[in-house]
Amino acid sequence: MNTLPRKSITAASLALALGAALSTAAVTAHADDKMADKEKCYGVAMKGKNDCKAGAGTTCAGTSKIDYQGNAWNLVPKGTCEKTASPTSPTGHGQLAAFKEKKA
């Protein structure tokens, strides 16, 4: 078993890389195409999650409990996942059938 890289990591090669890095960093645009296009940032929604309000009142899901270990779970993901291609699924939408607990 030979897991050693064929090209050894020499001080000289690191110096070369670092030198190159310094010059590319100075020229802001980055060459690596994989890195370039997706790094556009959309800041994390800046929300403070702690507050002292009360929400929902008496009419919401505080009491409805869907038990996925029984057979009560009948929800299917119905979001943007339906738009993704899934090669493993004959429908092209992944396996989104309602989850049913297997009976022992």
């Binding site: 507050d51 002292c52 309000k53 009360a54 929400g55 929902a56 009142g57 008496t58």
Partner: peptide, 8 residues
């Protein structure tokens, strides 16, 4: 009536 402190 039941008032909820919703701050909303």
């Amino acid at each position: 009536p039941l008032l909820i402190d919703s701050h909303g």
